[in-house]
Design a protein around this nucleic acid. Structure first.
Ligand SMILES: [Mn+2]
Ligand SMILES: [Mn+2]
Ligand SMILES: [Zn+2]
Ligand SMILES: [Zn+2]
Lengths: 143, 143
DNA sequence: AGCAATAATTGGAATTATTCTAATTCGAAG
DNA sequence: CTTCGAATTAGAATAATTCCAATTATTGCT
């Protein structure tokens, strides 16, 4: 289990050689550590440029490959806002996303204690939900 | 106010020359009537091919332009599932979307009586939500 | 260690939904 | 009827993402 402490995210070297059955290659560790390092929901391109600092030879294709591997193994979440480029989120707890229309900044939003989906949606009974995405946009109360 | 009765949607000719301050050109009426005709959440391309039946000279660019005009005037909703092409929905009531992973079919899902956003989300106080999108994927209980 | 098999990485090309551009056409208003 | 801003059009451009084929790295044997 990877620590998500706000003030100390693992360097690539600190990540184990395998997580959850996923082989952690040098590139995957780099990409994962970049996603873990900041909670700003970077795009693939953001991850690419940040990764290049430590690993100048990494390619954008590899960043996409690594992100896809991490997402499909449940280590990272992919976040979408309308037709904008996908963003990546290291927060695996149940949450959704709010984008400040002024700045573009994305904030994690958690569900209130003990609420669950079926409680507020009129879902056709027997429905098995495998994926849920809630995206909000608006303004932060600034006054 | 446009009728949304399941079994009689307006033909282009039946639509007025202006709705809500939006000038309804021949093409906009055609596109709007196509979106109103079926509740299957067509993509821009779907709308294009359906429109071409009645109006063979309409262009894809125009379909995009018309959909954009209709969406920004609140007459049609734009619906997104992850990175898939946008879809368009004539249902203006408060609802969200469920996509059957088997068939790709999209179903409208309504909120239970009297629930409201702030009731289940831990939103930073003072937040003004201007846009909300909830997208679900999964399987319909088939047994 | 040496070797074969397998998986990951890479640069560049391809894909594709959508947007842009510049020219033409339309239509409301006078 | 003319004018003029708005809408439509065909086609080019854009941009995020995926694909491809070649190279490189890693794993699992002997
Ligand atoms: Mn997702
Ligand atoms: Mn929307
Ligand atoms: Zn998040
Ligand atoms: Zn809908």
């Amino acid at each position: 289990m990877i620590s998500l402490d706000a003030n100390s995210s693992p360097t690539p070297e600190e990540l184990p050689p395998e997580i959850d059955g996923l082989r952690m290659t040098k590139q995957r560790r780099e990409v994962f550590s970049v996603v873990l390092a900041e909670r700003d929901h970077p795009t693939a391109n953001d991850v690419f440029s940040r990764s290049q600092k430590r690993m100048p030879t990494i390619s954008l294709a590899t960043v996409y490959n690594c992100l896809e591997a991490l997402v499909s193994h449940g280590l990272v979440r992919q976040v979408n806002f309308e037709r904008e480029p996908s963003r990546y989120c290291p927060n695996l707890s149940d949450h959704c996303h709010f984008q400040d229309e002024k700045t573009g900044t994305i904030h994690d939003v958690v569900f209130k204690e003990g609420v669950n989906l079926a409680d507020f949606l009129e879902l056709p009974q027997g429905t098995e939900v495998s994926h849920l995405e809630i995206s909000l946009k608006g303004q932060i109360g600034s006054n």
